[in-house]
C-alpha cells in the first residue's frame, strides 16, 4: 500500500513538472513587432556589470552604450522598455524561454549562438582578444603565456583558445573587478579580455594603469550582435533590427555613442561606416 501511494505521488510530481515545462514553452513565440506592441513593452536582456556597455548608477538604473541602443529600439516601436540583467551563461536561455524579446548584452557572434537564436546582421560592434599585463613582464607574443597564470572571466569564449593554443593556466572569475584585483596583487601575470574593454580601462585611469599595457597582437576579432528568438527567424522584428543596425552604421550613430561612453574608437565601426 505505501509503495502504491508513493508511486502515485511521484507520478503526480512528474505530471506537475511536465505541466510547468509546457507552460514555459507555450509562451515563447511572441516576438514579432505586432506582439511586442500588443504587450506594450519590449523586454531586453542587457549586461549590468560590463562598464561602459551596460552598468548601474547609484540609483540602481542601468545605463551604458547598449542601454541607449535598447531605449531607441523601444522608442521606435512606441513601447515601454524593460531591462533584465543577464549573464553570458543565461542570456540565450532567457531568450528561448521568452522571458526576454531581445539580447543586447555584449554577445559575440558564434556558430552555436546562431543556431540557438536569430542573430541580427550587421553586427553593431566588434572586439578582439588581448591581455592586460604589467609592462615589466615585457610580453610580446601569445606563446609567452605558456605556464603563466592568466585571469579571465567565466564563460568567455576566448578562454579555451588561450589555454589550448598557448598553454596558459586560466583562472576564471565571475566579474571584472575580482579579476582586476588578482592582477593588481600580482597573483595573475595577465588578464585576458576583450580588447575594447582593455583599451577603455587603460584610458579611464592613466595613473593607476601607468605600469600596465596591452602588449599582444589582438586575435580573433568577433562581431557583437543583437539576437531574437530562434523561432522568429523570419519575423518582422528581426528584419526591423537589421535595417536599424544598418542605419546606425550609415549615420555614424554608433560611432557617436562609442564616443559618448568614452570607448576608444574601434576600427570596426569606422570600416562599417565607410562601407555603408
Amino acid at each position: 500500500m505505501p509503495v502504491r501511494l508513493a508511486s502515485f505521488a511521484s507520478a503526480l510530481a512528474a505530471a506537475a513538472v511536465a505541466l510547468l515545462l509546457t507552460v514555459a514553452t507555450a509562451v515563447a513565440a511572441v516576438d514579432d513587432i505586432k506582439a511586442i506592441q500588443a504587450k506594450g513593452v519590449l523586454v531586453v536582456g542587457v549586461k549590468a556589470d560590463y562598464r561602459p556597455w551596460g552598468f548601474i548608477d547609484p540609483s540602481g538604473a542601468i545605463v551604458g552604450m547598449e542601454i541607449d541602443m535598447a531605449r531607441e529600439i523601444a522608442d521606435k516601436l512606441g513601447v515601454r522598455l524593460e531591462m533584465v540583467p543577464v549573464t553570458t551563461a543565461n542570456r540565450i536561455e532567457f531568450l528561448r524561454q521568452g522571458r526576454i524579446d531581445l539580447i543586447l548584452a555584449t554577445m559575440s557572434d558564434t556558430p552555436a549562438r546562431r543556431q540557438a537564436s536569430t542573430v541580427i546582421d550587421p553586427p553593431y560592434y566588434a572586439g578582439g582578444t588581448n591581455i592586460l599585463a604589467r609592462k615589466s613582464l615585457n610580453f610580446q607574443r601569445w606563446q609567452e603565456l605558456r605556464g603563466r597564470r592568466v585571469c579571465a572571466l567565466q564563460g568567455a569564449y576566448y578562454n579555451r583558445p588561450v589555454a589550448e593554443n598557448w598553454g596558459a593556466i586560466i583562472v576564471a572569475f565571475p566579474g571584472v573587478p575580482e579579476a582586476m584585483i588578482d592582477l593588481l596583487a600580482g597573483n595573475c601575470d595577465a588578464f585576458v579580455q576583450d580588447s575594447s574593454l582593455i583599451a577603455s580601462t587603460l584610458v579611464s585611469d592613466p595613473v593607476k594603469w601607468a605600469d600596465y599595457e596591452m602588449p599582444m597582437e589582438t586575435f580573433g576579432e568577433q562581431a557583437w550582435v543583437m539576437a531574437v528568438s530562434a523561432a522568429n527567424r523570419e519575423g518582422s522584428f528581426a528584419r526591423f533590427l537589421a535595417h536599424l543596425s544598418q542605419d546606425w552604421h550609415r549615420s555614424g550613430h554608433l560611432i557617436a555613442l562609442e564616443k559618448k561612453w568614452g570607448i576608444p574608437p574601434s576600427p570596426f565601426l569606422k570600416s562599417m561606416h565607410d562601407k555603408l
Binding site: D49, R51, F55, I56, D57, V86, G175, V176, P177, T201
Partner: peptide
C-alpha cells in the same frame, strides 16, 4: 541565479566603479 539582492548589487556597483581597490 541572478536575483538582484545585496550581493548581486554589490557586484554591479563594483563593476560600475571599475576600481579594484574597492572590492575588499
Amino acid at each position: 541565479v541572478g536575483v538582484e539582492e545585496a550581493m548581486t548589487l554589490t557586484r554591479f556597483a563594483l563593476s560600475a566603479e571599475n576600481r579594484s581597490e574597492l572590492l575588499l
